[in-house]
Amino acid sequence: MDHFPTSWGRPRNDAIDAYGTYPIAQRPYNGPKDAFSEGVQHTQQPIVTGTSVLAIKFKDGVMMAADNLASYGSLARFKDVQRLYPVGTHTVIGAGGDMSDFQYIQSMLDELMIDEFCAQDGHTLGPAEIHEYLAQVMYARRSKMNPLWNALLVGGVKDGKSFLAFVDLLGTTYTASTLATGYGAHIAQPLLRSAVETHEHELTEAQARQIIDDSMKVLFYRDARSINKYQVATITAAGSSISDSITLETTWDFAEGIRGYGAQTE
């Protein structure tokens, strides 16, 4: 028991100590911390970064793609990084932005899904719930001036409904039948829209795959932070699968004819 009268009668914080488990003396301190104690640790900029993620809806579900590169500035530092991650059986998230923050998000979601699994009561978190959770976490972190520096796509299928939505480091969310993050939002999104919009419910998996492959190829030609190696995730009512890395066939003959910059001597 806490014999100091000054600690008596403090309101409990149900958000932190929902069950009132702790004796009063051991309760977590909810007051302000030293103003500078965490200041220097806030994320000011991303360090090791991934580039675009693309995703579209098709007849049976959602397809998502991201390349395998994690850049260190403009240096192509890590060339076999998986930027698509399955969460539960019917959801996949894809991340651009800081890869260490993405790894943190992965372990956070793993923990969440284990907690959910341990309840063993038949209730599961689907893509919509995971997206809402991520949105709340991202917004909470940005409100602490310490954002998780990512742009995330969440795609999945639950109860026969496909779900695709975006959330970024500010906690901004939106949803559409085609989504792209980063450079892809400028280069690939118009291509995806013209190929997908209005016939989301007719596109077959093969057609969706063709649209994704074409867009990834365009992105590789245009985006200097991309690599010609990428993975594709497919989520249907049957579950999610993430492909092995695919290497793009590209040609650079046309580059010979380009004049005006580079190593040409004439």
Binding site: A18, Y19, A119, D121, H123, L125, A128, E129, E132, Y133, Q136
Partner: peptide, 15 residues
């Protein structure tokens, strides 16, 4: 708020 899901009844009662 966190999951945009109405709390499952059994979880609320257990809590």
């Amino acid at each position: 708020m966190v999951f945009n899901r109405p709390v499952p009844v059994n979880r609320l009662v257990s809590t």
